[in-house]
Design a binder for these strands. Structure first.
Length: 386
DNA sequence: ACCTGGTCCCGGGCTCGGTTTT
DNA sequence: AAAACCGAGCCCGGGACCAGGT
């Protein structure tokens, strides 16, 4: 979206009539180029990376902290900037100074996508190379060699490995193993929620992120809503309320606000009412799985979840009932047995909760109903747009 | 004993770059 | 130059078996 368009929308000349002007600014899965309230942590990161600015190898790092504490936000922003400065090309263009140290290449890789060796090599390679990397028709070992060749001929590479050790992504030690098998000049910067004592890897530097403190989260949310919503769409008290409820988790807070805004938008309201906010908060379960994990699933699995959250209460009362309804949906072309298996798999990785019914009628094991553990309002909206 | 829900696993086939043959 | 073939990862279907209830 260009600047003129943004300004016009703020002035109210845009196509939308509701409270949302920029959904991206509100979204818990999109990171801003200038994160709010994490200045000291950014400095700590830069301190640790300091050797890179003088031409030597920076230390390996482990950045850990709870969900929604800004780890990804800070690292994606920082690496995006550093990548723009990184490599030889940039240093030639800017070599006005006498001594111009060459920065390493910086690459950000999301292990939610790069959850196999093949995809990890693929994503690192496409981040540091200008040439397109095939995603089919080439062996893993072949890809590893190509990556090794690319790296050995160039500078060092610093790779951020985000979302380690989630149910569907590799552990820190596995990812490290995959990378070091290719080249030892690739420096890993891992991000995860587990404490450093339980990751089975010894990083040279370890940095901890704490939950956002209440007033910092309020500031963050205020910044986000000021560019994402129309003026006065949400009150300061409402922002404070969400912040308090979210207990320092920026992901949950943003999901709740965006859910509330979408609900207000549906009724063409000029502001977010108390009822809208309640519904927005209600749409975010506690504890909540990051929306990013849902959006990293394959298309067919997202479709299945979309159908699931669109079901009526009785259809969701048991896994079998849900299976039948979902398999019967016109947009789903999977067999019932596959639908059933995938539903159980999704429950296994924590995206759904199985709540066993206490009912005593009927023979056999009591059925369980499936409860989503992710922001449902937001997911429906985002998936529905596609 | 019997029934239904839940878990685990593997063969087969699809898609799509790369490679060889025509 | 075009067509046929190969093989990589990945998705799908389904069956065997285990768990928990009457």
């Amino acid at each position: 979206m260009n600047i003129d368009e943004r300004i016009e929308r703020r002035l109210g000349y845009g196509t939308t009539t509701g409270v949302v002007v920029d959904a991206d600014a509100l979204s818990p899965v999109s990171h801003r180029s200038s994160p709010v309230g994490r200045g000291p942590d950014l400095e700590r990161l830069l301190d640790a990376l300091d050797p890179a600015f003088t031409g030597s190898l920076p230390p390996s790092m482990y950045i850990h902290g709870p969900k929604g504490s800004g780890k990804s936000a800070v690292v994606t922003a920082l690496f995006a900037r550093l990548a723009a400065h990184g490599g030889q090309k940039q240093s030639i263009q800017t070599s006005t100074r006498a001594v111009d140290p060459v920065l390493p290449e910086f690459a950000y890789v999301d292990l939610r996508h790069a959850h196999t060796r093949f995809r990890l090599y693929h994503d690192v390679l496409s981040a540091i190379s200008d040439e397109p990397v095939p995603d089919h028709g080439i062996g893993t070992e072949e890809l590893a060699e190509e990556l090794a060749d690319t790296v050995s001929g160039r500078m060092d590479v610093v790779v951020a490995l985000d979302h380690t050790a989630e149910p569907a992504s590799p552990s820190v030690s596995t990812a490290i193993e995959w990378l070091s098998a290719v080249n030892t000049r690739i420096v890993p910067v891992c991000l995860g929620r587990e404490p450093p004592t339980s990751i089975n890897w010894d990083p040279e530097v370890s940095i901890e992120f704490d939950r956002y403190r209440h007033h910092v989260l309020v500031e963050l949310l205020t910044t986000r809503v000021s560019s994402g919503l129309t003026q006065h769409a949400i009150t300061h008290d409402q922002v404070r309320e969400v912040s308090e409820w979210a207990e320092g988790d920026a992901h949950d807070a943003l999901a709740a606000i965006m859910g509330a805004a979408l609900h207000a938008e549906q009724s063409d309201a000029p502001t977010i009412s108390t009822a809208d906010l309640d519904i927005g908060i209600e749409g975010v379960p506690k504890p909540c799985v990051s929306l990013g994990r849902v959006l990293a699933l394959s298309e067919s699995r997202q479709r299945l979840l979309y159908e699931l959250v669109s079901l009526s209460e009785p259809d969701r009362a048991s896994v079998n009932a849900a299976t039948e309804s979902i398999a019967a949906a016109p947009a789903v072309d999977l067999s019932p047995s596959t639908v059933r298996r995938i539903l159980y798999e999704l429950a296994d990785v924590g995206l759904l909760d199985r709540v066993t019914a206490p009912r005593s009628k009927g023979k056999g094991r009591p059925p369980s109903r499936l409860v989503p553990r992710f922001p449902t309002l937001l997911f429906r909206e985002l998936f529905g747009q596609q």
